[in-house]
């Protein structure tokens, strides 16, 4: 069986229907456990104090903000190459979730930055990149909503997503060039010797897992809604013709 069978809307609907509630339950459960664990059962950081605990929201949302765009990029490519409607609709469905993640990352970052750096906002490369990412998301969503014909919209937004990705990467380097940052290095990476300390590490991983599950649940739910919308439209068109 090929993975492309799931690109058939009916097959997709049938397969995802039982998964969505489980993903929601697991995702929300994991986030709640991770937050309670992180907030009440880990020590305060010796330098940052209690403010470090916002890491459990900040890092997962920031990761997903970027990964949502990557997912949209892949989905756009699949749509342009293989013309699977579900792919285009999944890209459309992921965008508002991605925007929300970007906003959460920016806002928690501001709340964290205030006591740490003494300011809500600095034009730091990472912060600036996220602001630019936010603008890209806005343009993408605006283009989707401006075009009436869904296939035309899918084509144009896919082209925008691909070109936008190239320019987003360029902007990232440009911004790095433009200013030196206050932001610390990556909190998590596989090859770094020094990650965040273990006490923070485990609840953080759990929070990330929860965010990913919640993200999947939201995107699936929204994709299912989009598929239903298209079905309504198709039925409507056919009814008006006959």
């Amino acid at each position: 069986m090929s993975i492309w069978e799931y690109a058939n809307p009916k097959k997709f609907m049938a397969t995802t229907a039982p998964a969505v509630p489980w993903l929601f339950a697991l995702g929300i459960g994991a986030i709640v456990v991770a937050l309670v664990w992180g907030f009440f059962f880990t020590p305060a950081d010796y330098r940052q104090g209690a403010t470090v605990k916002i890491i459990y929201l900040h890092v997962p949302s920031a990761m997903l903000a970027i990964n949502a765009w990557l997912m949209m990029l892949v989905a756009s490519l699949i749509w342009l190459v293989r013309r699977h409607h579900v792919s285009a609709l999944a890209a459309k469905a992921a965008a508002p979730v991605g925007i929300t993640m970007t906003l959460i990352a920016l806002m928690t970052g501001a709340i964290w930055g205030q006591p740490m750096w003494g300011t809500w906002w600095v034009w730091d490369p990472r912060l600036t990149s996220f602001l630019i990412l936010f603008l890209f998301y806005l343009g993408y969503v605006a283009l989707w909503s401006a075009i009436e014909d869904p296939d035309t919209a899918a084509d144009l937004t896919s082209i925008l997503c691909i070109v936008g990705s190239v320019f987003a990467v360029l902007s990232r380097y440009a911004v790095n060039f433009w200013t030196q940052g206050l932001h610390q290095g990556a909190s998590l990476s596989l090859d770094a010797k020094e990650n965040v300390a273990d006490v923070f590490y485990q609840p953080l991983l759990l929070a990330i897992a929860g965010f990913i599950l919640l993200f999947l649940a939201l995107v699936l739910l929204r994709t299912r809604t989009e598929i239903r919308w298209r079905r309504v439209r198709a039925l409507d068109l056919r009814a008006r013709r006959d």
Partner: peptide, 29 residues
Amino acid sequence: LTVGLKRGGLLMSLLVLPLYVPTLVFGAE
């Protein structure tokens, strides 16, 4: 991207301006 739209001007600005960021950064630099 916006050629077929009735009121494409504003949307076009929203799409184009983020794409201008790298050019602006290096140009002004």
